[in-house]
Design a protein around this nucleic acid. Structure first.
Lengths: 122, 122
DNA sequence: AATAATACCTCAGGTTTTGATGTATCAATT
DNA sequence: AATTGATACATCAAAACCTGAGGTATTATT
């Protein structure tokens, strides 16, 4: 049966993650200079102790969109016989990363104001 | 031109708020026992110092959906000649509110792990 | 030889939101 | 008396994003 159960279904099941993927990508690239898609999925899994799993069906379109928006550049490299697409931030992408991080801070701030029993994640 | 510019366009412009509306509704109802739609929009504006504006085109469908899911009950009351639909949490809705709050905590935790320069909103 | 991991991809269908628009009542102003 | 603004509900097409499924192919492990 080839590879039917390739992923054990990442299940974040919460709608809250919608809209956060591009920020995650941008921020990881800010820290790591250049990364390829699969590497991003592994990094996210690693840094969240396996709790957050990026769906590849969301990741690749998101990368393509960020590239189309001029926030990322891509460089294809052959590793063995396999192609890798390394992504890196453009200048515009760096600026946008800063903006998006501010947006996240605002989001958390607003959530705290609304759900006041505090989120307390210092 | 009647009331063309009725709202100065709430503009939260960030995609991050996607998926958070139902939690906001649930939580406000947990705190306030019963509220009607328009009251919710005002409360959110008030508690976030006008920074977060709920789009009515999102709010009403969200309320209807929560009701359809059995998380809210509705009671119509006439105020003067105008109808108000008061919403309140069901038992199931209370439980769900707890779950959704946990999901938000997890979301913030994961974002903190990924964007480690910390969110620090104690 | 088969499986698992690496590495890219697409696409139908789902959910949620945006932005525009519609209707109507009531209070305040002109 | 008439208009505006606030209150209060609603719908809907299009946009945005994601899920879950599927596809292809290489390399490493069992």
């Amino acid at each position: 049966m080839y590879q039917l159960l390739r992923y054990i279904c990442g299940m974040n099941n919460s709608q809250l993650y919608k809209g956060s993927l591009s920020l995650i990508i941008l921020k990881l690239l800010e820290e790591n200079k250049r990364m390829y898609g699969y590497e991003i999925t592994q990094k996210v899994k690693e840094q969240t102790n396996g709790e957050l799993v990026i769906n590849e069906g969301a990741l690749y379109p998101a990368l393509h969109k960020l590239e189309a928006e001029g926030l990322l550049t891509v460089t294809i490299e052959q590793v063995g016989n396999r192609p890798r697409k390394y992504y890196a931030l453009t200048e515009k992408g760096e600026a946008e990363t800063t903006n998006r991080l501010e947006e996240l801070t605002d989001f958390v701030k607003h959530m705290q104001l609304l759900l006041n029993p505090k989120l307390s994640l210092g």
